[in-house]
Design a protein around this nucleic acid. Structure first.
Lengths: 167, 167
DNA sequence: GGTGAAAACGTTACGAG
DNA sequence: CTCGTAACGTTTTCACC
């Protein structure tokens, strides 16, 4: 694995817990909370970014503030599960800005998407180009999101209670 | 609406396009790309954070680097759609760290979840506490994610070609 | 990993359009 | 009302212990 679990220690985990909900927290504040010097915090953050433990640092934009009031969960079944067709579909999703998330899954459907749109018309337009004009899409089922209860990319890092003592 | 679309202009939109994929970009770099001074960029970012156009600033943690190799999409149906039971379920999801995302939807299911787990056993444990021990959950259906094709919280901001002239 | 100095960055006040 | 410039305070970075 290239993303080697370079064995994060509990300091790393605590730091991750903080920055994954607020990455503009100053190293000084983090340092206080984890009982380390600001410089040490920065060194660890730098290392984790280089090692791809931290993949990216992003601002979360309010969809409503930007004219994207609606969210949909869509289950898509392909006509034939051929590797090249699946890859083509994946690329289409990746390049479609309306598609926020796309998962290739086992089970009844082949793909599950999270899609945003300004309104129903906008979504209808999306389905036309993404699904109806794609002969490889057998069927799709849409769920309209009434309320996003929780939307996060946070990962439970799970600070261990006891340190596995190497001594 | 409290999140008033304080009419973002094209500068704001361009800035959002940048920070929503890399919020550690310096104002100087952003300034170059949008043709503004660094101070103006900072002022706009500050305003958008205050106005909740930017909801938060987060580090995206690599799930694999942190022992969360598996992702599931789960559709949940409740026994009875009573407002108080729905709220209770929502709170449970919000407080469960395994639940990354939770959407309250129309359609066949009531909720759709994105759940992460270390492995199958871990997921099985999650279903036990979250679903089986909850008498209000009628049924749930799990899709195992084979490959996350696209995972983002980016919103298409859509810099307008022409500014709607208010004159 | 800690400390402190130097460099980079964000913030604010000011004058101008 | 928002820009740009420039001074100021803060934060990060780096060399050294």
């Amino acid at each position: 694995m290239t993303v080697s679990s370079h064995t994060l220690d509990n300091f790393d985990r605590k730091i991750l817990d903080i920055v994954q909900v607020a990455n503009r927290t100053t190293s000084e504040e983090i340092a206080e909370q984890v009982a380390l010097s600001p410089a040490a915090v920065q060194r660890r953050l730098k290392r984790m970014r280089e090692q791809q433990v931290i993949l990216s640092d992003v601002s979360v934009v309010n969809p409503k503030a930007v004219g994207r009031g609606m969210t949909f969960v869509v289950q898509v079944s392909l006509e034939r599960e051929r590797a090249d067709l699946i890859d083509t579909f994946k690329d289409g999703m990746r390049n479609n800005p309306a598609v926020q998330q796309c998962y290739y899954v086992t089970g009844n459907s082949d793909f599950i998407l999270i899609v945003t749109a300004a309104d129903m018309d906008d979504y209808e337009r999306f389905t036309r180009t993404a699904f109806f004009e794609n002969s490889n899409v057998r069927s799709f089922q849409t769920n309209v999101v009434m309320a996003p209860v929780k939307v996060s990319l946070c990962i439970p890092v799970g600070t261990e209670t006891a340190d596995p003592d190497p001594a």
